[in-house]
Amino acid sequence: MTPPPIEFLLYGGALALVALGLAGLVMARHLFRSILALGILEAGANLLLVLAGYRAGGVAPILTPGTLGQPMVDPVPQALVLTAIVIGVGVQALALALALRVHQAYGTLDVAEVRGRMEADTDAAAGLEPETSRDLPAVERPS
């Protein structure tokens, strides 16, 4: 059995990070953990972009006396990823601030619980009867 080529490993790792982040984002029951999963998804996307600009045998795109005239890797995806990382931390900070406010308002960060209380609040604000449960059989629902 021959080992897989190195590009398979690198692309597979980046895509595994994307898939893991997506799965965690959807499945997490705690808001804090979905913010962390968003970070993993972002990391996978960044790795994918840098991989797209890699050139075999190239040197870093910085001119030093030793590297004049050698082939260099593509600088455009690197500049893009540099921007993306800094914006990512801003987004993360904003999401955490929103999560802190949710925690102050509802006292919990469990996704299902927060959603239930938000629906109850909007129902109360609209003057509707609180819906008991959607999972009950239709006979037992208050009509």
Binding site: N46, V50, L51, G53, Y54, G58, V59, A60, I62, V73, Q78, A79, V81, L82, I85, V86, G88, V89
Partner: peptide
């Protein structure tokens, strides 16, 4: 992957 700028940003952030 020869991207020291990105590595520096990722390390700092």
């Amino acid at each position: 992957l020869r991207a020291p700028d990105v590595a520096l940003t990722e390390a700092a952030v």
